[in-house]
Design a protein around this nucleic acid. Structure first.
Lengths: 227, 227
DNA sequence: GTTCGGCGTAAAGAAGTCCGGAACAAGCCC
DNA sequence: GGGCTTGTTCCGGACTTCTTTACGCCGAAC
């Protein structure tokens, strides 16, 4: 569950509801921003939240206007959470630019699922980040110290597997299973050779591996702190 | 009224509901595709609908598996319309990749508003702009350095696919799927030849591609900063 | 000290890919 | 029909990648 760093702007004039919602969201691992009316919410857009969860009834600037104003600038996902369950309210909010509409009181698990669905589509490009190394899974690009590494498909698959299991040792069996789809012909030797060529491109000193250390009798381990 | 040409794939095993839904959608100006199970729905993906509206309970392949299969390839919006209103069903569908979940029987106006909300965010830009290159999808015109390029239908489809996925590598499989609707006869060679002829028209130096670089063992990648 | 097995590197052969050109089929317009 | 355009298949040369093999190194066990 990759929610790391995703922040949600919660807007509601009822402070008890506000704190209840933010508590739930924080428990799920999200960062939260809070606003009690549309004006304050607009100001908090500068913090670049990843999603807006807003009520409709609010003083100063109501939810409808907030949606319209936000949409004039950005395409950030907006989810409405309101006691008003009438068809006309839903249609108006959705047509103004809201992406989903949930009626209060919500089922928290369902609300969370709907938020996940909205966040998913703006998910940042599948990217694994380590100190001095970023791996873009979508673009199949690996950047180290500002320079892009040119990897063969096998090398990239290897690095992707290692990076997604950073810190944990990987058995030869697992490696062959994942990178070669368990082609029975593949041997440990083949893995070793590809690891070697990956090290030549990845390691500052290939003979003293820093990232890709061998785990005798087991396989290999990728050492790096995520983020 | 920008619903022109937007098509919706409706999936439901109950033919009376199916025809009722498609009637409503057509009345709104959408084009519709119909399927009575997940298998047939998958086959109709070749028609490139803009949205999928699907039931969950179906023979042959149920809605959950349909969602999972579609998501493995595409990010087309998926709206679930089901009698099953339980929290667990909603969460499962949403987490599998659905974008919205509406319980049967739906309020038609609300359903339409939710479909609009989903379609809005995938609205085709109509025009793709890159430095020294603009592609007008509506008029099917490509302008480079003030001169208009004359492309064949296949070449245009290729360029459109590449430009909408700028920066990301495209596998031969994806290319064939999108440009040739997965016609099984099409081979990599065919793709290569058309890429070559597209390069001859697009690239300043066709033997040293700047936009359309080949990604060995993968396919091709279109390199250009959007805007 | 010797033996043994895993580990790392280098080299070579096998296999696959990319590209351009040429040839062929199908459709269109004059 | 003849000419043109478009789309597809095939071939050879150049190149890259993958796998295997061989050899040396090192540590552990005896």
């Amino acid at each position: 569950m990759n929610k790391r760093g995703r922040s949600i702007l919660v807007v509601d004039d009822d402070r008890s509801i506000l704190s209840l919602l933010t508590a739930e969201l924080r428990a799920e691992g999200y960062e939260t921003l809070e606003a009690t009316d549309g004006d304050k919410a607009l100001a908090l857009l500068a913090e670049q939240p990843d999603l807006i969860l807003t009520d409709l009834a609010m003083p100063v600037m109501d939810g409808f206007e907030l949606i319209a104003r936000v949409r004039r600038q950005q395409k950030i996902p907006i989810v409405v959470l309101s006691v008003r369950g009438s068809e006309s309210d839903k249609i108006r909010a959705l047509d103004l630019g809201a992406d989903d509409y949930v009626v209060k009181p919500p089922s928290i698990p369902e609300l969370l699922a709907r938020l996940r669905a909205q966040l998913r589509r703006t998910a940042p490009p599948g990217e694994l980040r380590f100190p001095d190394l970023t791996i873009d899974l979508q673009c199949r690009k690996v950047v180290q110290g500002g320079r892009e590494l040119k990897l063969t498909p096998t090398e990239f698959a290897l690095l992707e597997l290692f990076a997604t299991h950073a810190g944990k040792p990987l058995f030869f069996e697992q490696i062959i299973q994942n990178v070669w789809q368990g082609a029975s012909a593949t041997s440990k030797d083949t893995v070793r050779v590809h690891v070697a060529s990956l090290r030549r491109k990845l390691e500052p000193d290939p003979s003293n591996p820093r990232y890709l250390v061998s785990e005798p009798w087991i396989g290999y381990r990728f050492i790096a702190e995520p983020l």
